[in-house]
Design a protein around this nucleic acid. Sequence first.
DNA 1: TAATTAATCAAACCTTCATTTAATTATATG
DNA 2: CATATAATTAAATGAAGGTTTGATTAATTA
Lengths: 202, 202
Amino acid sequence: MARKPAEQTVHPDAILHAAATVFCRQGYHGATMADIAAEVNLTAGSLYHHFPSKQELLLAVLDAGLGQMISAVQAVVEGDAVPPEKLRQIVQLHVQSEIDNVNIAAAVIFESRALLEMPGVRDQYVRQRDALEALYRRVIEDGIACGDFRALDVGIFVKTMFGALNWVSVWYRPAGRMSGAEIAEEIARTFLASLRPGAGMP
Amino acid sequence: MARKPAEQTVHPDAILHAAATVFCRQGYHGATMADIAAEVNLTAGSLYHHFPSKQELLLAVLDAGLGQMISAVQAVVEGDAVPPEKLRQIVQLHVQSEIDNVNIAAAVIFESRALLEMPGVRDQYVRQRDALEALYRRVIEDGIACGDFRALDVGIFVKTMFGALNWVSVWYRPAGRMSGAEIAEEIARTFLASLRPGAGMP
DNA sequence: TAATTAATCAAACCTTCATTTAATTATATG
DNA sequence: CATATAATTAAATGAAGGTTTGATTAATTA
């Protein structure tokens, strides 16, 4: 009996990466299976040997992107830097992952809300998104507790940050005047300035 | 000769509103002409008496949303309040208009990407979007010039604000613990704190 | 080499729309 | 009332694209 896989294989990871690229570039509905397949020199039909449907492909991409993001942020949050430094680092992570195509979550959510309405699917996504939000929240709360940050409404502040950071994927262009790291640095500066003790009152 | 329109007419505004609702709920690609028509008790084909295509319908929705927003913001910017007060007011306007007209606002935000892929149409949208951004930019620049705000990268700051403000329509729920005005006030506070002279350096 | 199986492809399939077309209905004007 | 016109519809058209299907190719192992 013979069994091992042929080595002409395109690795599932390569397909995931291709799908992320195309979803990010064209949105979920705008991306065709043929587009994704072309990115790895396959035909549309061949993709079905690796993923059962376009929808599953999107889920896998979202899952991978958010999952990686969460663990990266988690590492920072559980580290022993001081809160302002942690905040700076996770802003860098967030922006960088958007730019690298890894976190297409933010980009894709702009076009896939209908898809995410599907109950079984939405839950996992929301759970992950909330987990990420909770990590951000913790950094802010720690900073307030130790006096590094002024007291403020943490819920609103975190959502404000999320909006600002997710929006980067809408306007960022590789050919722009600033690198991702520079953009992240500037955004981090904005929020750190805002968090300064005493900055809240006129 | 007879001429006047029959009064069984569905007003174009009603169609616009319906389109905004459906675009918001299902996204541009996910919205069918039949869905939109059903919202005003018509059939898909009937819509073509009022709008030449689905694409034009989206454009009209975006145009209405952005246009209203621009004129409101313009009034504030051209007023004679001091820059921090102007900023506070346009944040209020932005958030309030999202909340008052969630559907159009969300359509503007989420479907802008679909629109940007339509060559003939792209230009007008980009022009309006840039006009709105320019108004924000002007307030910041004025504030820096007169010493009310610290010096910073105005382009990034404005995009950061836009992201934060647009994101409100993603998470805002009427039943939430805060009113739109309270949310806007908190967000304005965040950015005003960030703009304080001297807040930038550690 | 022969058997087995993974990976792939080309073509067909089928559904879902946007849009068109050719009537049909309703209304205002004369 | 007569009729031109607006508004609408039901049905047809045609393209796009996700998914299936039935070979074909290549690699692995015995």
